[in-house]
Amino acid sequence: MNKKYKNKMQLEILSKSNNEAFARITVAAFAAQLDPTIEEISDIKTAVSEAVTNSIIHGYENKEGVIKINAYIYDNTLRIEISDQGKGIEDIEIAKQPLYTTKPELERSGMGFTIMDNFMDSLKVESVLGMGTKVTMEKKIKDKNTKEEINQEENFYA
């Protein structure tokens, strides 16, 4: 998406697990200006949580590093970029497979990328071994009229 954004936020956090909640809540607060539903906000929070957790656990392997989070608003679309300078992903396509995890001993479910992919409209993962990983996600927030139409349909078929 090359066109000019309407609004932007930037956040840098240390790769500490107690910063994960801060990151997801901050992005959700930024997204609130698009007037999302509770479900849309919940989807965004979950996707951010997964990407930040990946950077902490897999990118930096619990060592200290910096995670950068940029979020942009284009019309009614939220774009989120989450990047680290950690170890990188060897094979992105394999890493994106449901239930795939490199850390089964830590009881990871291997569902991180699947959740991001399902809860957002688009997901792009770029990674260079030894250099880091960047996850870019977009979600279109439905406008109020569309939401009302969906609600009416749901009520009709209820």
Partner: peptide, 13 residues
Amino acid sequence: SFMDSAGIGLLLG
């Protein structure tokens, strides 16, 4: 009020 794949991992364990 919030669940992600870490919670899924805990439940599966």
